[in-house]
Simulated assay, not measured.
Amino acid sequence: MNASDTPPLIGIHHVALICADYARSRDFYTRVLGLQVIAENYRQARDSWKLDLALPDGSQLELFSFPGAPARPSRPEAQGLRHLAFRVHLLEPMIERLTAAGVACEPIRVDEYTGRRFTFFADPDDLPLELYEIPADAG
Rank of each mutant, 00 (worst) to 15 (best):
D111L: 03
R87L: 05
E112Q: 08
M1Y: 08
A23H: 14
P128C: 10
L131F: 13
A85E: 08
E40H: 06
R109L: 06
L35H: 01
R72P: 01
R116Q: 15
T119F: 04
D57A: 10
H89T: 13
E40P: 02
N41R: 12
F66E: 03
C19G: 03
C19V: 13
T6F: 10
A69I: 04
D47F: 00
I95H: 02
D137S: 11
F64C: 00
P73F: 06
A23D: 09
A54W: 02
G115Q: 05
A104P: 00
R31I: 04
L129E: 02
L51K: 01
I18L: 11
I108S: 06
V37E: 12
E96F: 04
D111M: 02
N2I: 08
D5R: 08
S74G: 12
A69E: 10
H83I: 03
D21L: 13
V37G: 04
L129P: 00
G11I: 12
R31C: 06
V103I: 12
D137K: 09
T6I: 13
Q60R: 12
R24T: 15
S65Y: 01
C19I: 05
R116L: 09
D5M: 12
A85S: 11
V15Q: 08
V15I: 10
M1K: 10
R109C: 05
P135D: 07
A16S: 11
A69R: 10
L51Q: 02
V110Q: 12
C105I: 04
R46I: 01
E62V: 11
N41W: 02
H13N: 12
L61A: 07
L127H: 06
D5S: 15
L17W: 01
E96K: 13
I95V: 15
A71T: 09
A136M: 07
L9I: 14
F28D: 00
Y22W: 07
A122Y: 08
E40A: 13
L81W: 04
E133F: 11
R24Y: 00
L51W: 00
G58M: 12
L81F: 07
G11P: 04
P8A: 13
I12Q: 07
T119V: 15
V103F: 03
T99S: 12
P135E: 05
L90M: 08
D123K: 07
R24V: 14
M1A: 14
R75S: 14
V37I: 14
E130P: 00
D137E: 09
L33N: 01
A104R: 08
V103M: 04
G115V: 06
L51Y: 02
I134Y: 00
P128D: 10
A122T: 13
P128Y: 05
A39F: 09
Y22H: 05
L84Q: 03
A45R: 07
R97G: 05
V15P: 00
V15C: 11
W49C: 02
H14Q: 14
R82I: 05
